[in-house]
Simulated assay, not measured.
Amino acid sequence: MEEYIYNYLIESEVRKKEANKANGLILTISRQFGSQTRKAAEILIDKLNKDEVGYKMHKRPWKLVDNTVLHNLSKELKVGITEINEFTPIEYKGLFDQIMHGLDFNRNTLDDTLYTALKTVILSYFERGNVIFLGRGAVHFAAGIPNVLKVKVRASEDFRVQQFANANQLDFRYAKERVKQKDKKRRKFNAYISEQVPVKYDLVIDREELSDQGLADCLLSFMKLKEKELTRKV
């Protein structure tokens, strides 16, 4: 477990947090499945570190967080990454599963522990500062934090299906069905994490019109504007 997560867990036991806290700058990128944002995020990380964006506020190299969250949760909860990744909240399962859950038969401990563990891990990265989140529900814990830029990247279903089909060498019709399944699972997970509270995004970007480089440049310009806005208020 990374040092700042360990420190966060220790400190949270001895102090009551009045509000979520974030250092430096934080970028949360919520994206539809198949919208292809990882490469752009990797390019953006290099640009942010090269230009030292946010360093006046908090001098720390930028970090991209995606699968890292799953690895940290896996260690903390002592369950496999696949189990976490495929988790479906009990309220979205069938009646039989809900009854069995209520009777404690075949009870999935993730139903009781995942939300708290996820919040702990994500808030620890908020305190680390200068972090880009690719999904993982981070945006749902960012409400009321001024130094977080909340971005939604979207694309048409056809675009996302074609990207998924090309990346995995799949038939378009089969890929379309898979994308619909992934979208459905992601909606359920976000509903579970958000507790039905709608997200107010600072920026919504249509992915199809931008290259990876173009998307990275767009996000870089908004992060620089965010830094100017925050430092002007200090």
Rank of each mutant, 00 (worst) to 15 (best):
F96C: 06
R178S: 11
R136A: 07
K93G: 02
K228V: 09
R31V: 02
F164K: 03
R173N: 15
A155M: 02
M223E: 14
L44S: 02
L64W: 07
V234A: 15
I26E: 10
V69K: 03
K75R: 12
K150G: 10
A138H: 04
K47R: 11
N72I: 10
R31G: 01
E177R: 10
L149D: 04
A191N: 08
Q36C: 12
A216S: 09
Y192W: 06
K119V: 00
E13V: 10
S221L: 11
L25S: 00
G34W: 11
E18I: 00
E127G: 02
E229L: 13
K59M: 07
F164R: 02
I99F: 02
F87G: 06
S221W: 06
L118T: 10
I193W: 02
A191H: 03
E83T: 13
E42F: 14
K21H: 13
L103P: 06
R187P: 00
G80C: 05
E195K: 14
E127S: 06
I99G: 09
S211R: 04
L103H: 13
F33N: 04
Y6W: 08
F164N: 01
L110M: 05
Q36S: 14
R178P: 01
D183C: 02
L73W: 10
T28H: 03
H71L: 12
A191V: 01
L123C: 07
R186T: 13
T109Q: 14
S74T: 05
T28L: 02
Y115L: 15
I10M: 10
P198M: 03
R15S: 13
L215I: 02
H140F: 15
K78Y: 12
L110P: 05
E3N: 13
Q181K: 13
D111V: 14
F33D: 04
W62V: 05
E76S: 15
F33K: 10
V131Q: 07
K228W: 12
K224S: 08
H140M: 11
E42I: 12
K39P: 03
L230E: 04
K93C: 08
N147M: 06
F141V: 07
F159C: 05
K152A: 11
L203P: 00
